[in-house]
């Protein structure tokens, strides 16, 4: 029995993918000699999430994020390893388990297309057998939090992508799940919608103490919600630890924002990212940032100087560039 909400140990998923060369001859040959390639979508992944924790699950396309989330939610059977979520084995898909989780995928539509979202919410009530009082309270609370009071009576087909996504999320959480698997919940949405959904997830987590695993290609989502991230690449965990630790460990450079008393060419000190009059942004190797800063202060009259970490997107790109076969790191 684990005290963690989610416990994963040595989780592995291997797909057997048939493949053949192009052309008629290859097609005929494949009739008698079928070639199957093993694809290790997830390989020996281990981690735990404490109850109430929000963790960013990051990786490039095809890294194994969605496969992992599908195994955690019970949609896929693992090829190996152990998974326990709220004390349940997800692949058994027990009703008692399914009532406590939700999986929101940014590209899925579970609402009744021709009807107002309110009708779909009513259906959720019946599916999850939510007591009427609790259902009405939760529904009204969520509608208010998402600011969609004027939209819930419109047929879903008449809503914008962002509005539909808000409804999807409300519908997915009406039964007040204890574990949320959110797979790209802000995919394709504008900045305002993204912000609203982020704040909703944060509020839900705070009010209901839910555990959240979030994948997103928008680092703003991750920075706003997650203190901890798990980075996965080629099916293996590359990093598991604090988001700030990820920057410390992987940021290869720092950015110096310099305002000179008189314009000058600073190309010899590092890579000039931008130069507008006396304002220069310089990218320098992380290890040399202090020494270069000292040299700049000694050689030029500076009216302002800032030292900044690179944008988190750049750091993540750096992590993905790291060899996937090195042991997982934690921070």
């Amino acid at each position: 029995m684990h005290t963690s909400a989610i416990h994963v140990n040595g989780l592995t998923k291997v797909y057997h993918v048939p493949e053949r060369q192009a052309g008629l001859l290859a097609a005929m040959r494949s009739l008698v000699q079928r070639k199957v390639r093993e694809v290790h979508a997830v390989e020996n992944v281990s981690f735990s999430l404490a109850p109430g924790e929000i963790v960013g699950f990051l990786g490039p396309n095809g890294a194994g994020k969605t496969t992992t989330l599908k195994m955690l939610s019970g949609l896929l059977f693992p090829s190996g390893g152990e998974v326990s979520v709220l004390g349940h084995v997800p692949s058994r898909r027990e009703a008692a388990y399914l009532k406590q989780i939700t999986l929101v995928m940014g590209n899925r539509n579970q609402l009744q297309w021709d009807l107002p979202a309110l009708d779909s919410f009513e259906l959720q009530r019946a599916i999850y057998r939510i007591p009427t009082d609790q259902f009405q309270t939760t529904r009204d609370e969520f509608i208010e939090m998402m600011e969609v009071g004027d939209l819930v009576r419109k047929p879903v087909r008449n809503l914008s992508l962002g509005e539909r996504m808000k409804m999807e999320i409300i519908g997915a959480l009406l039964h007040r799940p204890q574990v949320l698997f959110l797979d790209e919940p802000t995919l394709g949405l504008d900045v305002t919608m993204q912000r609203r959904i982020r704040s909703f997830v944060a509020d839900y987590n705070r009010r209901h103490g839910a555990t959240v695993m979030l994948t997103s290609h928008y680092m703003a989502d991750v920075e706003a919600l997650c203190r901890r991230v798990i980075v996965i690449h080629h099916g293996k965990v590359l990093y598991d630890g604090a988001l700030s630790g990820l920057v410390d460990r992987f940021a290869a450079y720092r950015q110096l924002g310099i305002t000179l008393a008189e314009p000058a060419d600073l190309g010899e000190y590092g890579e000039v990212v931008s130069a507008e009059g006396s304002k220069v942004v310089l990218r320098v190797p992380r290890a040399e940032a202090s020494r270069i800063t000292a040299r700049l202060l000694a050689n030029y009259a500076l009216t302002d100087l800032t030292i900044e970490e690179p944008p988190i997107d750049d750091v993540i790109a750096q992590v993905f560039a790291t060899e996937a076969d090195q042991p997982a790191m934690s921070g």
């Binding site: 999986l103 995928m105 590209n107 899925r108 599916i127 999850y128």
Partner: peptide, 12 residues
């Protein structure tokens, strides 16, 4: 369309 996956996630 992923509708089967959605159905499999419901406790019914």
């Amino acid at each position: 369309r992923g509708e089967l996956s959605a159905a499999l996630l419901r406790p019914i």
